[in-house]
Simulated scan of single mutants.
Amino acid sequence: MPQDRHFEWWHHSHPTFAGITGFFAGMLYVTAVPGAFAGILRLLFTYETAEKLFPFVLLALVVPIAMLVKRKTRRFAQFMFVGMVVTTLVVLGVASLVLYFMVDA
């Protein structure tokens, strides 16, 4: 009986479960998917061809958009988009500050 209750704390229906997992999934999605896509393209094709094919990574946005349509995954997808947007803003903000300080110095 004690082993049946081992993962009782892991409530998938908990109100914050979808929010936390969606946010971190969005952070991972916006960083790992383009990197993995670029790596796979570079392994399969020449540099010039991989560079031409890289914009197709935007097709990966179909997955979170499709999750917004279905009611059961909508909350997760909303937080996933928040994680994607926040991560993008942080990366762009840090990159712009680093570039500013590099050029200014």
Rank of each mutant, 00 (worst) to 15 (best):
A32W: 03
A25N: 12
P55W: 04
G35F: 08
T21Q: 01
D104A: 09
V98N: 05
L92P: 04
A105K: 11
M102P: 00
K72A: 09
G93L: 07
F76W: 09
G93M: 06
F17Q: 06
L41S: 04
M80Y: 05
L68H: 03
W9F: 15
A36R: 01
A18W: 03
H14Q: 13
H14C: 07
L89Q: 11
L61R: 06
T88P: 00
P34G: 07
G93H: 03
A105N: 13
R74T: 06
V90A: 14
M27V: 15
V30M: 12
M80I: 01
L92G: 01
Y47P: 01
V82S: 07
F54C: 02
R5W: 10
T73M: 04
T88H: 09
W9D: 14
V57P: 00
M67N: 10
I20G: 08
L99I: 01
M67Y: 09
Y47T: 09
A32C: 09
L41F: 02
G83N: 08
V85I: 15
A95G: 01
F56M: 11
T21P: 08
F37T: 05
T16L: 15
F24M: 06
T31E: 11
F76P: 14
F45P: 06
V57F: 02
T46V: 02
Y29R: 00
M84H: 06
A36G: 10
W10T: 06
L44V: 07
P55C: 04
A38G: 10
V82K: 05
A18L: 11
G39Y: 02
A60Q: 06
V91Y: 09
L97I: 03
P2F: 03
S13F: 02
F54L: 14
G35N: 15
W9V: 08
R5H: 12
F37A: 10
R75E: 12
Q3S: 15
F7Y: 15
M84G: 13
S13L: 11
P2S: 06
L28N: 04
Q3R: 08
P64A: 02
H14G: 11
M102S: 07
V69L: 14
R42A: 14
V82E: 09
V94E: 10
V94Q: 07
A50M: 06
L43Y: 04
T49V: 14
